[in-house]
Every structure is written in structure tokens, then in C-alpha cells.
């Protein structure tokens, strides 16, 4: 049994975007703070710290999860994927490129979490309806875009991955 006393930093090791990373965390440190401030991956953002806004969503062993509702110590040994890992080499991945094409972000603060949900969702749901996409996205709050571009981008990537050509113009 793992047991960590309060106020006692311990070592946490996890796989962040394919690379093993180690940092120090007290038992109470949130995974979101650990990723951002201990590991320096600041692409994951905090919007509410009570699990509603979705900005901090990362993938834990491939599954979209609120990083603010997990302790860093719970991530020990797990695979954590964040927005920083979504690129295709140096280039934007297809989902990111579609977001850009569709003006699916403005301030970009909520975007990292949305991309992580979409990444898992599209893996599991290759042929989503617009309602499926909206239902999945309803776990995220975006204050800038009115969501139109986001929905369009996700549907387009789903179609692309099934072999349809990308659109060229914006929404």
C-alpha cells in the first residue's frame, strides 16, 4: 500500500506525451498544478478547479479527464497526454489544423481541454453526428466562439479521417 503523509513531498513519475517525467508533489497537489508548475507543461489551463469548465481536460491513459479533479499522486505510472503532444512532428495535427481553419478558438484558453476531449472522442466515435459532437463538447465552456467553429472542425476531421477531403474556406 502506498501511503504519503500530509505536507511531505514525494516523487511522482509519469509518462507525459510519451516521455517519462519525474517531479515532486505533496499528497494534496492537483494533477493540473503538477503538470503546469512542476513539469512546466503550461498548455493545460485552469478555469474553475471544480470540474465544470473543462479547460484542464487531459487524457489519462487515453481517457479525457479533468486534471483539476485528480491528485498528482494518482497519476503515478500513468500515461498523461496534453495539448503539447497533439502535433504531428513540428506541424499541427489534423484536429489542430481544422481548429485553425474554422476559427474554432479566439483567446485559446479553453482550447487545450477541448482538443483532448475531441482526440479521445474521435478515436472512439469515427462517425459522429453533429448532436454527438455537441453532446461531447457540452462538458466544456468556451466564452469566445459560440462553439460554431469547434463543432464544424470536429465534424470535418471525422469526415477527413474517413477519407473525405478537407474544406478550404472558413466556416
Amino acid at each position: 500500500m502506498t501511503r504519503i503523509a500530509a505536507n511531505t513531498p514525494c516523487r511522482v513519475r509519469l509518462i507525459l506525451n510519451g516521455k517519462e517525467r519525474v517531479g515532486q508533489a505533496e499528497s494534496r497537489m492537483l494533477l493540473s498544478d503538477f503538470i503546469r508548475h512542476e513539469l512546466g507543461a503550461t498548455g493545460t489551463h485552469l478555469g474553475c478547479e471544480h470540474g465544470v469548465c473543462g479547460a484542464c481536460t487531459v487524457r489519462v491513459d487515453g481517457v479525457a479527464s479533468r486534471a483539476c479533479l485528480m491528485l498528482a499522486v494518482q497519476a503515478e505510472g500513468r500515461r498523461i497526454d496534453t495539448v503539447e503532444g497533439l502535433c504531428d512532428g513540428d506541424a499541427l495535427g489534423d484536429l489542430q489544423a481544422a481548429f485553425k481553419r474554422h476559427h474554432a478558438l479566439q483567446c485559446g484558453f479553453c482550447t487545450a481541454g477541448i482538443l483532448n476531449s475531441c482526440a479521445e472522442f474521435l478515436d472512439k466515435t469515427p462517425e459522429p453526428s453533429e448532436l454527438d459532437v455537441r453532446d461531447m463538447l457540452s462538458g466544456h465552456l468556451c466564452r469566445c466562439t459560440g462553439y460554431t467553429g469547434i463543432v464544424a472542425a470536429v465534424l470535418e476531421v471525422a469526415a477527413q479521417r474517413r477519407g473525405a477531403p478537407p474544406e478550404t474556406s472558413h466556416v
Binding site: 500500500m1 503523509a5 500530509a6 505536507n7 505533496e26 499528497s27 494534496r28 491528485l71
Partner: peptide, 17 residues
């Protein structure tokens, strides 16, 4: 909005819990 300090235990069996 951060938790207060606590001891953390991650037992591996029902009996330990």
C-alpha cells in the same frame, strides 16, 4: 481553490481499505 493537507493512502486490497 486548493485542498487542505491530508494523508494519502492507496491500498491494494479491500481488507486494507
Amino acid at each position: 481553490m486548493k485542498p487542505a493537507a491530508f494523508d494519502y493512502a492507496r491500498p491494494e486490497s479491500r481488507g486494507e481499505v
